[in-house]
Design a protein around this nucleic acid. Structure first.
Lengths: 269, 269
DNA sequence: TCCCTCTGGTTCATTATTGTCAACAGTAGT
DNA sequence: ACTACTGTTGACAATAATGAACCAGAGGGA
């Protein structure tokens, strides 16, 4: 992590939906790097089009090159186009906020959101970076993702975001194991207070999980009935995304889903 | 340009619609960098999520982090969402391929395309990087963009992409000047043989051009009538994009557009 | 089977880039 | 005029990047 490009790229992580434009000094403070260093890095990234500087305010923001690259990826490996309709349907079916994340380096990147229509809902900021160990999406992804990934996470630092966060590798591993047996990830307030998450993984063409579809609800609203409904919805959506993007559902996984569904309260089809 | 991050970021430019997955050695050859260097850079970028490596083939491709960043930018400064409908309409009106580009570092980034419905049409690859000095979009953008930008381009290297390319700074500047007087950029086969381009700039909130909407047609099909039609279409679309994205049309520019339109053959509204 | 030639990945001494700190210019507020 | 910011540039010590050589594995031919 001492490489210069790595440091430069962490600068991008400070741009969020709520903070889309950042000044040089400000960014230097947040990244704990020297002003001059940040300046040089930003200049290089501006040349490449990753960021751009406004002529008037001198503030930096994400550049047009990002849009170009996104288009290339989307053209070659369509994802958000098949993802968004599924998210919308999940949100409609469950009445709660749905979102999807993809493995992105050392964390999960939120690449799609559909807000709940309810007044009291979990509101997510677009483009947030989610840790694996605090989110339902993370558990689901680790349970069925590359072996190396879960290994890295379990041996890495597990900082607590709330008092409920699983910071003990053994306990975390146990939760991953349950996810592996039920076919979905489930967390209560481990990432944010009063947020309950349920997530199902989707798979790439090699049969490894590469992300998850999740529903986030206010914890107090969670009930046995809602839980069953959400689990069914994310299972269906994740499968649709998997097949829609050319992924391969492991046979083993389909088995797991069936047994989980039949053990839920309420009726199944 | 000797900075390490700059070199690392040029690696991204080798991923295109036709070449979405690249191996390590291959990328090292294309970028004229050492294998070890490229590997370290790719690892850093993979950590940040800009690229990702397939487990099976070991090939690298653009990563999910790109999608995340694109979403953040699009959420904060909606662009493609307002752009695409306009492009579609231009393509429909003119029957030719329409595209839009944004200033992205030292070049133009193609961020939107709508293909012509004709069998014989100009086909563009999504996410292409366009030079300023060979394209109609470039002329239009330079004519009304930041002073510093046109200065940099005119003093930079103007490599010829076809035998028609303007490689002489004086001649190029003259063409920019005509664009400044007519309100639109126009090129014939300066970027690619048998491609005729007409482009109108759109503006940011400071009243500076930040990109252009362009129509590309097979050169032999261009006629006085089609030309008038295209110019009208790109003017209208560019204005719509400007206002739709919170930009400000310079009063001076509106004046220019009016006089240009009234000098065209055929009827105007 | 052996040989050859690719591939992705790693090592390590040399060297060039980077981080650091200070100074500078411009702007806004007091 | 003063202060406290901002973005930007320069110089030098420290560090990280470089690139040749090397490794292991996958195909391909004969």
């Amino acid at each position: 992590m001492s490489s210069t490009v790595a440091k430069a790229l962490t600068l991008l992580d400070h741009f969020t939906e709520n903070d889309p434009e950042i000044g040089l000094s400000d960014l230097a403070r947040r990244s704990r790097l020297d002003k001059a260093t940040v300046h040089r890095m930003l200049s290089a990234m501006a040349d490449a089009g990753l960021v751009e500087q406004r002529h008037d305010t001198k503030l930096y923001r994400l550049g047009a090159g990002i849009l170009r690259l996104a288009r290339i990826r989307e053209e070659a490996f369509p994802f958000t186009s098949v993802l968004q309709p599924e998210l919308n349907q999940v949100a409609r079916e469950t009445g709660e906020t749905a979102h999807a994340s993809l493995i992105s380096g050392r964390a999960l990147a939120t690449v799609g959101i559909c807000d709940s229509s309810k007044a009291n809902r979990v509101s997510l900021v677009a483009g947030e970076i989610l840790p694996f160990h605090t989110t339902a999406s993370g558990l689901a992804t680790l349970a069925f993702g590359p072996e190396a990934l879960s290994g890295r996470v379990l041996t890495g630092s597990l900082d607590g975001k709330t008092s409920f966060t699983l910071t003990d590798p053994k306990k975390l591993n146990a939760r991953i194991e349950t996810a592996r047996q039920t076919g979905f990830g489930e967390t209560d307030q481990t990432n944010e207070i009063d947020v309950y998450g349920i997530a199902a993984p989707f798979f790439d063409k090699t049969g490894l999980a590469c992300g998850a579809i999740a529903v986030a609800t206010p914890s107090h609203r969670m009930s046995e009935e809602l839980r069953s409904q959400i689990i069914g919805a994310v299972f269906r959506a994740a499968e649709a995304v998997t097949t829609g993007t050319g992924g391969k559902l492991p046979g083993r996984y389909q088995e797991i889903v069936r047994t989980t569904l039949s053990s839920l309260t309420g009726a199944q089809d």
